[in-house]
Amino acid sequence: MNAPAYTLAELCIAQCAEVWRGEGEVLATGIGLLPRLGAGLAKLTFNPDLLMTDGEAYLLAEPVALGPRGARDARIEGWMPYSRTFDLLWGGRRHALVGPVQVDRYGQMNISVICDYAKPKAAILGARGFPGNSISHANSIFVPNHSPRVFVAGEVDMVCSAGYNPARWPDGKVPESLRIGRVITDLAVLDFGGAAHAPRLLTLHPGVTAAQVQEATGFPLEAPASVPVTPPPSAEQLELIRTRLDPRNLRATVFKGDPPGDHR
């Protein structure tokens, strides 16, 4: 039996979903289109206990399809205004999948400014909730454009999200509770599970080489001699993505030309 064809976006959605496997009854926050689809996919398959918000002030009883809908079309199961979101996240029961503009070898992330702080080359959003998120609950990372501009040498220009750099912590001790989950990119899946939380290559998307990933990363990656290939999305996952979560195919807009997931 031939495995169904799938796009790179669909491969990434399935890998984004993996972030929430075994995480229990936490708030799943996916920032950006593919992370949000990944959260929905996790909830519809292996982790039905996840909490999700509608991006406004309600908890969704079930994931909603991306795209326009009536304001009251979604089935909800509760209220989650921002103040409650902070109360929840400070308690730790959340796993966010976020899209920083820079990531460094310590898992520190930046969404604030590029280059000089006083007169930045690019002012982006500001630190948002990253400092509090990183100290409070697990965070994973999605990067659609794996390159040394994102995975920078040295440290990120403004550390918004705390990471595994002992020099930045009181008494040089990284809190044991700090947890950076997976890093899903257009090339590979990484984590910070190497020696002393070193960044590590977990799987390569079909057709991508370890050398190619290292070349696109501004810091060294640990990797086994033979890196496994990222598994394809299952037929069930593809069905849910295509018919239930993203019937308008907005995922096709994430990567230029909507390339296939397996270009071997």
Binding site: Y117, P131, G132, M158, C160, A162, R168
Partner: peptide, 13 residues
């Protein structure tokens, strides 16, 4: 008091 900001540039800036 809070832990928010520890380990980040919020304190440095």
């Amino acid at each position: 008091p809070t832990r928010v900001g520890l380990g980040t540039d919020i304190l440095a800036r």
